[in-house]
Design a protein around this nucleic acid. Structure first.
Lengths: 200, 200, 200, 200
DNA sequence: AATGAATGAGCATTCATTCAT
DNA sequence: GATGAATGAATGCTCATTCAT
């Protein structure tokens, strides 16, 4: 009985937290982070202002949780796609993984409005440190251990970080500013460059 | 006589503008852009608040001019260094050019606090579009035309953009967050990766 | 219990709004509208600056609400006076109504400082459009339908507007500038002129 | 020789003053008085900021001079029209004078944007006090002495003031707000009312 | 846990006016 | 007389955060 109540309570809490995250997400994407007032978030979420501070410390806090959530979602989808397919080599697998994410972002370019800044970092952290999700742990191992390169383990970690940095920066620039060219033109070159870096 | 007066006035104006740019620079670097109030800038510059708006439209405006100024300064220094030395190949020359900038930024890591966001873009633009400065024009030609690669001209331009993006992103991450490792560890790997990309 | 709480809250809110209206009223009358800063209003009302914006959009907004409130008060008083007396004719009744307002304004000449501009308009609107207050509705009928004139209904409405405009303009000029003469001298002529216009 | 120089100087002065008045007029009419900055006036007039203060004490000052100038122009035109025609009676003459002004204002409704507030006052002052212009002096006599009414001289002065006040108020309200009706509908009623007041 | 009224520090921006040249 | 750079007081408004209910 008590447990049920607790459960229902925790559920209710989760619902409110998600309402707030959702509201914040849509507002951040539409208006940008700085331009979005907490007032608007709570209004859109349909809760009182004080409630916000029951779930999040401040705007930074909800932003961070949002980025984690959204990044995690994307990575999870990419990993699912990857696991459903066969690849000639781990590098091909990794490139497909990256391509899936690039394509996803091309279709959801609004995401960039606030994801970009911290994306590559969050991305990497998720893959390398977040051990809560088994799939991601597996992914990390897959990408780090299965490559056949001349790099040492330490170097390889840096190279992967480098690549993720490059992918996020360039995809952002290409999608948002068409610099140095539209994403369709940049993508093949980017992927072939990455293959060059990984294969030796 | 008239000319002298005009000259003196214009000179005074330039001095004030520089005072403001300097004050803004130090405050942006120390406290960050958003945390810096116009009030502080004018106080540090020793001018009245209204004077600020005589020279700049708003905070965005002074930021933009500051980024342009600082970026231009760094590139100019790097090009001067490069032009004083002999190199076995254009790629070596380019790598030295990049290394000089990385080293410069390492020593002035505070610069990143506000330069990063737009840096690579401004950087590239300066090299490719700003034809007012002869050295930069020459640099552009040097970097774009002297490489012996399999890339087409169009591809090469994209690759260079990619490299600049990678350098700025990674140098930023490495210097500011020590991610994926401190700059001393990342630099050799980064430069060798770039060489790999350019040489074939 | 809930209702009581709600009620107490709403009550408190009303008290604050009235405090602000009162403070604004006294300051507008003393110093004029433009010369009154929001800062002064909140200080006088004893609330925080932000609280002002909780109740009013801006200075315009509080001014409008103030004019409506004050105008409504005056009209209500005049109608009460009128309803307590017997008159030989509807025109006499109307003239007494106007005279009451003129006298009231003479005694509270400070009101004009900010009421004047919109007064006659608000006045008429209150009489003709505001159907919320029963007395005012009755007054409207009284003034518009009981006159025995040669005017058509449409003309009569215009004539009444004209008269209200004349009364407010002239009373203002006479009280504030003694132009064309002090109010004591102007009033009889004004009233007799109006009688002339209405009676035929 | 000296005189010529003086003359030329005075002429130059007048030219600048008129440039400033013209610029102010157009800006006041377009943007309103408060919204117009001295900066804009001098920019439009093509003179330096300091020059403004050589000719006018402040914004109030230029506004006053502007109202005087514009009002005087209108009255002058109306008097010219009136003097070119024959009328059955002085009242008809006066009514034509008023109608001319109403029509003029209908065609130039932008004038009202800033003229209205002080218009009737300036208007009357011009007619009754400004003895510098001979025509206006004559007009004053024409309107004040030629009426055949039961009013005493003192009363007549007040009545005329009243009428001018009524005309300006109502014309303003009618033209700008269509209250109580468009000017075409209001004008005949207004003029017939005035005739009623003057004729006995 | 939830509410939402209240807070008030903080900040950008404007603009009339001055005065050295 | 003319200029226009410099001034800085003045002010409206926002918004994250608190807390009594």
């Amino acid at each position: 009985m008590l447990l049920k109540k607790e459960g229902r309570r925790a559920q209710k809490k989760l619902i409110k937290e998600n309402k707030l995250l959702d509201a914040a997400y849509h507002l951040f994407v539409e208006k940008g982070i700085t331009a979005t007032a907490i007032d608007e978030i709570v209004k859109k979420a349909g809760v009182a202002k004080g409630t916000f501070y029951l779930y999040f410390k401040d705007k930074e806090d909800i932003l961070e949780k949002l980025i984690l959530k959204k990044s995690s979602e994307i990575v999870k989808k990419a990993l699912q796609e990857v696991s459903n397919k066969e690849f000639p080599s781990p590098v091909d697998k990794f490139l497909f993984f990256l391509e899936y994410i690039i394509d996803y972002l091309s279709k959801n370019r609004m995401l960039f409005r606030f994801l970009k800044k911290d994306f590559s970092w969050v991305f990497y952290k998720k893959i390398t440190e977040n051990d809560q999700l088994v799939e991601i742990k597996k992914a990390k191992e897959m990408f780090l251990k299965n490559f056949n390169t001349n790099y040492s383990q330490e170097e390889l970690e840096m190279v992967i970080f480098m690549i993720l940095e490059l992918v996020s920066s360039l995809t952002y620039s290409s999608i948002v500013n068409s610099e140095p060219a539209p994403i369709e033109k940049v993508k093949p070159l980017l992927l072939s460059t990455i293959r060059k870096i990984l294969e030796n």
